[in-house]
Design a binder for these strands. Structure first.
Lengths: 189, 189
DNA sequence: GTGATTTCTTAACAAAAGATAATTTGCTAT
DNA sequence: ATAGCAAATTATCTTTTGTTAAGAAATCAC
């Protein structure tokens, strides 16, 4: 875990063991709620094994807008960053092995490591990349039909199509599960 | 211009005059192309007066995905940051007064001011905020019907509805101009 | 102001999506 | 293995959008 960071920032090597000790390993079954809509997010989750989804309630139906898999980190985003209520829920899709860290510990690490300018550059680049990712994702909604979006997803993120139940994929694509089923039916012909 | 920066970072006061001298004031008519799809973006534009749109070609039709108004800055984004070809065009909607700066000059300013940690924090926060903005915008595409998106736009960004021609707003909402006209018609009843 | 051009609206039809409900398939726990 | 439950498919009907084309309204240039 965190090997890529050790390599990139060897000057912090003596500190990494301390930092890693802040993380708590947990094993949870599928459909476990890790953050509830309306609560303040205090934890960030690193996924060792399994997958998660972020969703929010809209007219009594849930809409999934993000998935996360192995080696990815998921938190309450704005809720985690600013300690405000989260507008979405985080839940496991598969039984998962996670490592969570408390915000106050992560803040301490960020505080200490920010002495190193490369660390901030690193965060800045990550922020830009995420921004670009959202932009591209958003553009596909303007540009493509639901059918094209589904075909894109198969091509660009086959792991999502493989591992995530269809109903979640449907709302992720901005359509109903019934409509996605029809699209799939059309495509086989 | 840049008064908010002067106030926030007074320690750079003696440098601001130099920095501002890098900016070039231009007045351009409506429908002026400032960056062409496929070209590398070397300039960032600060808008003193007027408004711009960013659009890309999709099946012989143009799709607008961003607007910018007074006191906002617009550049080729990834194209500007990484010196790669831009996938979109930047064009004036109204006759505009702009101040552009060359990337190499801006890089120099960023380089110098990054000695100040607050400056980087500032950029990091701005990046997070922009990311959040894209996310919210993207979520409205998953969550809302085109009609609701239009109503949202009237409520959240009335200046866009007021100043931007309808055909651009239509593609910004992910629908055809004909469909937006029908929605407007429906709403008056 | 007037003619020309662009933008917006309206109409007609085809294609696709939403809603609801019934049926089938697949998974889980015992 | 099978009963029970959740997920996916299919069917029917309504609503909305896309497409194309024609007409009305607004804007621009001279």
């Amino acid at each position: 875990m965190f090997d890529q960071f050790r390599e990139r920032f060897p000057m912090l090597n003596h500190k990494w063991d301390e930092y890693i000790s802040y993380y708590n390993r947990i094993e949870v079954p599928a459909k476990t709620v890790l953050l509830k809509e309306g609560d303040v997010s205090h934890k960030a989750f690193f996924i060792e094994k399994g997958c998660l989804r972020a969703w929010f309630n809209n007219n009594e139906k849930d809409i999934t807008f993000q998935f996360a898999f192995e080696n990815e980190i998921l938190s309450g985003a704005e809720s985690f960053r600013k300690s405000i209520p989260s507008f979405f829920t985080i839940e496991t899709i598969e039984p998962s092995v996670l490592h969570w860290i408390h915000k106050k510990d992560l803040d301490k690490i960020v505080e200490e490591t920010s002495q190193i300018p490369e660390m901030k550059d690193n965060m800045l680049n990550a922020a830009f990349d995420r921004q670009y990712h959202y932009m591209k994702h958003f553009l596909s909604f303007i540009r493509d039909t639901p059918e094209q979006r589904y075909l894109n997803l198969i091509k660009e993120s086959p792991h999502i199509v493989r591992r995530v139940p269809q109903q979640y994929i449907a709302t992720y694509l901005g359509i109903t599960p019934v409509s996605l089923s029809r699209i799939r039916n059309r495509l086989t012909k």
